[in-house]
Design a protein around this nucleic acid. Structure first.
Length: 666
RNA sequence: GCUGCUGUAGCUCAGAGGUAGAGCACUCCCUUGGUAAGGGAGAGGUCGAGAGUUCGAUUCUCUCCAGCAGCACCA
């Protein structure tokens, strides 16, 4: 390898001088340069050097082999430093994997390979696709490289030399990467064995520090070069890596547990919904799922009504003229389902579109009749069914579908009312999320993009209003500059589920565009006509997605008020059949969703089946219960059961099954 | 949409160039059993769709459809 033209100014420093190194315990040691972090580690103790992964110089992670240039605080990083060690192991894993791939298939071109949550990936360019079997071959080669304990070496290179080198090595993607680095900036090269890569580093001291039994290559997938779909598609290999075999095992176990709460799996097992080939991205809700859906919808309807919203319903199919007027035909047409009405039905052919959004229809209702400032804010809510042609690869169970229903509403208000409406909305949203079992959520404020409509003045006003309203609740929010829609700034609300994944659900968006395009007006105090601001907003986002999240977050163990089947009354002997019916009827009369199970099966069998079906309450009845007019109540997840009086059970259960917004104490 | 993989009974999956199998679920029979699988018997499949190769295709090839993992997209 032509690695001789090192230009590292640190390496070039000829004049030896003394520097003072302060260790974490406060001890100060003086060394003559040239000296490296590794040298200091060796000076402290041989065993420390052996364990040393890297070092921290004035708090910044660095290679042990890099020279220390001046007085500094130095700490040695070992596998005990969990976060740093993981980062290093994963990063080196990526490099070792790339080296393994190039050793097995030398014609493979390398690109980038960063650390990600739980592991790493590396993107390659190669004619042949990698197969699942290849992953094992690569893993075996990686273990060979690890066993070699090749020392990791680093040098600073000039941009020019790096380009020349990569051109010669026929690594076009690396040439492009280096090309993108600003002129005059030096860059860092790393080696282990003969293999070399452009990298910011830092890295481990040698390849043997990667635990050979704590990583696993997980999958192969496509990914666009530089994340741009106009570019070539590369092959990405994903891997996970940890500090120990046990950590890896724990992670694989966690993945299994996560798979068990996958809403697609639970949806089938609990008979909530299905999706089939003839209607991709459209949900068939089964009785259980629809019961859940309705419980949520009823709840939302009560909350919205209480918050001053008026519910409306608008058409599914609307003539293209409206979509042209709203701008959707121009900007959103490729996502719209079009339905044509042919001459058989109309003298003139008409082109309709299934609505992808409710907003234009809501403006139509607003526009009926003259509005006064006294009518504002006007909050129009709709459980609006929308259809969007989502690309085939983006669909995912309930989370991303083509037909869905939003808990949509539009607030028509004056500019001065934005802040108060925002604050009200955030209050409602956090209360709803809390009722659903989500105690915390993330807020993101997206501000004006380059391309936008509306004056700077109104953007200033709206951005300030949104931010002020957020601040009333929390100082913990993120700002995403330039990420607002062209028509106005927005707030996004993200929920974190039980296993740490984030989902965007709620949204609150100011719109300065649509009222203008569709001619919405109101008469102000001054008697003149004014343009209202329109706020698009949703709390759940879509019922489909929100229910998907709720299913995963609860692992199907819904709180009683949401559970599709709240109680199953199951018999122990057939002599109790009549009593079981009586119990179920009493529960139903008390407003609960109860069923009986009088099948000729043993109680063990029935308990197992209903527990797996995630029924929150099983009431078992046998001869004793008939006799005493009691029930043996078993709660999902609890061991054993409690025999209680029937009337008592009905009262307690129906209280518990009361939706949170109807609970007397709230 | 792109890359790769997958599609066999309701579910989970096995299988082979000569039209298919297991476990669970389902139906029936025996069993009336006290809190996470009692026993026996039976029924159930155009092997995702179409075309091609072949004497013969569910198996091999191609196209399409759908799903999965990612990427891109996500008003």
């Amino acid at each position: 390898m032509a690695a001789k033209q090192a230009v590292d100014p640190q390496q070039k420093s000829k004049t030896a001088k003394n520097i003072t190194v302060t260790l974490p315990d406060g001890a100060e040691r003086t060394y003559a340069t040239p000296i490296t972090g590794g040298d200091v580690a060796a000076d402290i103790s041989k065993s420390l050097l052996k364990k040393a992964f890297a070092c921290k110089v004035d708090g910044a992670l660095s290679d042990l082999s890099r020279p220390l240039e001046q007085d500094c605080r130095l700490s040695i990083v070992t596998s005990q430093d969990k976060a740093e060690a993981l980062e290093l192991i994963r990063h080196d894993c990526a490099h070792i994997m790339a080296r393994a791939v190039q050793e097995i298939w030398p014609d493979t071109k390398v690109t980038i390979g960063p650390v990600i949550e739980h592991g790493f990936f590396y993107d390659f360019d190669r004619q042949e696709p990698f197969s699942t079997d290849d992953l094992e071959t690569i893993e075996a080669k990686m273990r060979e490289i690890i066993a070699k304990k090749d020392p990791v070496r680093t040098e600073l290179w000039s941009r020019k030399d790096a380009i020349a080198f990569y051109k010669k090595a026929d690594e076009p993607f690396k040439v492009e990467l280096v090309d993108a680095i600003p002129e005059g900036e030096d860059l860092r090269m790393y080696w282990h064995g003969e293999w070399q890569d452009l990298c910011r580093g830092p890295h481990l001291a040698h390849t043997g520090q990667v635990p050979p039994d704590a990583f696993k290559l997980m999958s192969v997938a496509g990914s666009y070069w530089r994340g741009d779909s106009n570019n070539k598609m590369l092959q990405r290999i994903y891997g996970v890596a940890f500090r120990s075999k046990d950590d890896l095992k724990a992670h694989l176990h966690m993945l299994e547990e996560a798979a068990k709460r996958d809403h697609r799996r639970l949806g089938r097992e609990m008979e909530l919904f299905h999706i089939q080939e003839e209607a991709p991205g459209m949900v068939f809700w089964h009785p259980n799922g629809w019961s859940l859906y309705r419980a949520l919808e009823d709840y939302m309807r009560r909350r919205l009504t209480a918050a001053g919203y008026k519910e409306i319903k608008t058409p599914q199919l609307v003539d293209r003229k409206l979509w042209e007027a709203s701008g959707h035909w121009d900007k959103y047409r490729e996502n719209m389902f079009i339905a044509e009405v042919d001459e058989e039905h109309a003298r003139e052919k008409r082109v309709n579109a299934l609505k992808p959004m409710n907003c234009p229809c809501h403006v139509q209702i607003y526009n009926q009749g003259l509005k006064s400032y006294r009518d504002l804010p006007l909050r129009l809510a709709e459980f609006g069914s929308c259809h969007r042609y989502e690309s085939s690869g983006s669909m995912h169970g309930l989370m991303r579908v083509r037909g869905f229903t939003q808990d949509d509403a539009h607030i028509f208000c004056t500019e001065d009312q934005i802040e108060a409406e925002t604050a009200k909305f955030i209050g409602l949203l956090s209360s709803v999320y809390k009722d659903m079992g989500f105690d915390s959520f993330d807020i993101k404020l997206s501000t004006r993009p380059e391309q936008r409509v509306g004056s700077d003045e109104i953007w200033d006003k709206a951005e300030t209003a949104l931010e002020n309203a957020v601040r009333k609740v929390t100082n913990d929010y993120e700002i995403d500059p330039g990420e607002g829609a062209f028509y106005g700034p927005k707030l996004d609300f993200k929920l974190t589920d039980a296993i740490g994944r984030e989902w965007q659900c709620g949204t609150f968006q100011a719109d300065f565009n649509l009222p203008e395009r569709l001619g919405a007006e109101y008469v102000g105090e001054d008697g003149a006509k004014h343009r209202p601001v329109m706020m698009h907003r949703a709390i759940l986002g879509s019922f489909e997605r929100f229910l998907g999240i709720l299913i995963e977050n609860t692992a199907g163990r819904f709180p009683l008020w949401l559970a599709p089947r709240q109680v199953v009354v199951t018999t122990i002997v057939s002599d109790a059949d009549d009593y079981a019916e009586e119990v179920a009827a009493a529960l139903t009369a008390a407003g609960m969703r109860a069923e009986t199970d009088k099948r000729n099966e043993k109680i063990n069998y029935k308990v197992r089946e209903h527990s797996e079906g995630k029924v929150p309450v099983i009431l078992a009845v046998g001869r004793q219960e008939v006799e005493a007019r009691t029930v043996a109540m078993r709660r999902l997840g609890a061991q054993g059961q409690k025999v209680i009086d029937l009337d008592e059970a009905i009262t307690a259960l129906s209280e518990e099954a009361t939706p949170p917004d109807l609970q007397p104490n709230t």
